[in-house]
């Protein structure tokens, strides 16, 4: 991305338009991501390897006590963003600042004390051979956060209470619990070391509708109680809308639009956002009858062969020749509404 025509992604006047690299974070945001990229290399033949740009030059920030929603179709790189900024995958390029401190290979272990992750599948993300007490207590062991056994147990009970689990269940194994309860265990584990920031990667998509609401409300209550910030990754746009203060939309490894939740919902600028939001079936028959779906032609191109220029131009109804040649810059259209599109 060229800096001259790009306005800063980071509002608050901390960063002028031109000097990305001289930028010193002042701790105003819990998390700042600068030009983050993660490329994998994929074997496509015996000697052939192709780069897979799972995340390509992504920048955003998350304020204290804020929830940023990240939506997009499968394969667009949402999960890779979450994992790369936790340093579970070392990034190919780009920088991540946590609470003003740049995350590096060296300090990531100490910084992870403040950032945790809740995973999608409550069935495979818990060790079946560990008791609930050990699952929730393991982060405490790793970060050596207790003096003796009784302190550890007390903390585990406190956490179980926090997420609405009965402390008598501490000696049970994860297979004895329902999906919703297992997700609660996963959340208790994430909360064990008092993190400030949690990445929720499709944390409710495996749950039944009636259970989803329980977990979503719990995320909200915990945010108020413990001053947490979330990166909320999900493919279900209604759930992200409910949870998030701002929403970022990804398409083939790039963020194409980022704005405040109702702003992006009511006035989407990027044609992809527009069709994505219009495709969501609304659980209200009258709205559903009145609304008009913008149905996109074709499928998402393979991330191994990302189209040149704007990656969306192959499916975009407004695409011009320029779109296929040059990549649009990610610019602020006012009120922190960032869009990468030439025509809108």
């Amino acid at each position: 991305m060229s800096n001259t025509q790009t306005k800063s992604v980071f509002g608050q006047g901390q960063l002028s338009d031109t000097d990305w690299n001289e930028y010193e974070p002042d701790g105003g945001n819990i998390l700042e991501v600068h030009h983050l990229s993660k490329h994998f290399s994929v074997k496509t033949g015996f000697f052939k390897e192709l780069p897979l740009k799972a995340v390509d030059d992504v920048s955003f920030f998350i304020r204290h006590k804020e929830t940023l929603g990240l939506v997009g179709e499968s394969g667009c790189g949402k999960t890779t963003v979450g994992r790369t900024l936790m340093w579970l995958y070392p990034p190919t390029s780009g920088e991540v600042f946590f609470d003003g401190e740049r995350i590096t290979e060296k300090n990531v272990r100490t910084l992870r004390r403040n950032m945790q992750m809740v995973f999608q599948d409550p069935y495979s993300s818990l060790n079946p051979r560990m008791t609930v007490e050990d699952i929730i207590g393991e982060p405490l062991d790793v970060h050596k956060m207790y003096k003796d056994k009784s302190e550890r147990r007390e903390r585990v009970y406190e956490l179980m209470h926090l997420v609405g689990l009965n402390q008598e269940h501490a000696t049970r194994y994860s297979h004895e619990f329902s999906g919703g309860q297992r997700q609660r265990i996963g959340i208790a584990r994430a909360l064990a070391i008092n993190p400030k920031f949690i990445v929720c990667d499709e944390s409710v998509s495996a749950l039944d509708v009636s259970i989803q609401a329980q977990i979503l409300n719990m995320f909200k209550d915990l945010q108020d109680e413990l001053n947490l910030s979330y990166l909320f990754i999900a493919h279900d746009i209604l759930i992200v809308t409910y949870m998030s203060d701002r929403i970022a939309v990804m398409y083939l490894g790039k963020i194409v639009e980022l704005a405040e939740t109702n702003e992006i919902n009511d006035h989407p600028i990027h044609p992809y956002t527009e069709s994505l939001f219009s495709a969501v079936p609304i659980p209200d028959p009258i709205t559903a009858r009145e609304s008009h779906r913008i149905v996109l032609e074709g499928d998402v191109p393979s991330p191994l062969h990302v189209p040149s220029g704007c990656a969306f131009h192959t499916r975009c109804p407004y695409a011009t020749e320029k779109c296929s040649l040059e990549e649009p810059p990610f610019t602020d259209r006012g009120h922190e509404h960032f869009v990468a599109c030439w025509n809108r």
């Binding site: 329902s178 509708v209 259970i211 329980q214 979503l216 809308t241 939740t261 109702n262 659980p283």
Partner: peptide, 24 residues
Amino acid sequence: RNLLQSIPKDRKTDERLIPIAGTP
């Protein structure tokens, strides 16, 4: 009635979801 109250609407409001208590 409970099911309809427990799903998010299409716009963000301050209204909380009302979950169905218990497990299936």
